[in-house]
Simulated assay, not measured.
Amino acid sequence: MSIEQPQGRYASFEAFYPYYIHEHSNRTCRRIHVVGTGLVIAAFVAFVATRNWWLLAMPLVGYGFAWVGHFFFEKNRPATFKYPLWSLMGDFRLFLETVSGKRKF
C-alpha cells in the first residue's frame, strides 16, 4: 500500500493520517511535536484566562518546535507546507493519542 496517493492529494483526513504518521517516524521528532502542541494548548488556555493578546503568538512557538523536529531529526519537509489544515489536525491527533497513552511517547 502506498502512503502517498499518485496525484499527491488525499480525499479525507483519515486517508492523510497514515502519511502524517509516516512523516513523524522519528521518536525525537514526535516528542518535540507533542511538546510544541502542548505549549500551544497551554498558551490558548492562558489567553482565555488572562486576555493577554501576546499569547496568541504561541502557534509560532509550536511550529518552531515541529520544524526543528523535522529539519534536524526527521530530516524531511514538514507536511504543513503541502497540507496545512490536515497537518494541524494531525498535530492535535498525535498529541491526544500520546497523552492518552494510545501512542508511545
Results as ranks from 00 to 15, higher is better:
residue 52 N to L: 15
residue 31 R to T: 05
residue 58 M to K: 11
residue 17 Y to F: 13
residue 55 L to R: 04
residue 10 Y to D: 06
residue 85 L to W: 15
residue 9 R to E: 15
residue 100 S to T: 15
residue 90 G to I: 02
residue 6 P to A: 05
residue 56 L to I: 11
residue 104 K to N: 10
residue 27 R to E: 11
residue 18 P to A: 03
residue 2 S to C: 11
residue 12 S to K: 11
residue 86 W to V: 10
residue 99 V to L: 08
residue 1 M to H: 14
residue 34 V to D: 00
residue 96 L to P: 00
residue 102 K to R: 14
residue 95 F to K: 01
residue 99 V to G: 02
residue 44 F to W: 14
residue 94 L to M: 15
residue 12 S to Y: 07
residue 7 Q to L: 14
residue 3 I to Y: 15
residue 8 G to Q: 10
residue 71 F to S: 05
residue 36 G to E: 00
residue 72 F to A: 13
residue 75 K to C: 02
residue 103 R to M: 08
residue 1 M to T: 14
residue 103 R to Q: 08
residue 24 H to L: 02
residue 40 V to H: 00
residue 65 F to H: 04
residue 102 K to P: 06
residue 88 L to V: 11
residue 60 L to P: 05
residue 80 T to E: 00
residue 29 C to H: 07
residue 5 Q to R: 15
residue 91 D to Y: 04
residue 6 P to D: 07
residue 25 S to E: 13
residue 96 L to N: 07
residue 68 V to D: 05
residue 13 F to M: 08
residue 24 H to C: 02
residue 17 Y to D: 03
residue 34 V to R: 01
residue 84 P to H: 08
residue 45 V to P: 10
residue 3 I to W: 13
residue 38 G to D: 05
residue 82 K to I: 11
residue 95 F to S: 00
residue 77 R to C: 07
residue 78 P to R: 07
residue 53 W to Y: 15
residue 86 W to Q: 13
residue 48 V to A: 14
residue 104 K to W: 08
residue 62 G to H: 05
residue 43 A to K: 11
residue 39 L to P: 01
residue 20 Y to M: 06
residue 90 G to S: 09
residue 28 T to W: 09
residue 87 S to E: 02
residue 14 E to T: 14
residue 36 G to P: 00
residue 57 A to G: 15
residue 27 R to I: 10
residue 13 F to C: 04
residue 29 C to L: 01
residue 97 E to F: 10
residue 76 N to R: 14
residue 48 V to I: 14
residue 18 P to L: 07
residue 4 E to A: 13
residue 27 R to L: 09
residue 29 C to R: 02
residue 55 L to P: 05
residue 63 Y to T: 12
residue 36 G to N: 04
residue 73 F to E: 04
residue 80 T to A: 07
residue 100 S to H: 09
residue 100 S to Q: 06
residue 82 K to S: 13
residue 74 E to W: 03
residue 84 P to T: 07
residue 91 D to Q: 08
residue 24 H to W: 04
residue 89 M to W: 12
residue 76 N to Y: 02
residue 84 P to W: 10
residue 100 S to Y: 07
residue 23 E to C: 13
residue 94 L to K: 05
residue 16 F to W: 11
residue 41 I to G: 00
residue 104 K to P: 00
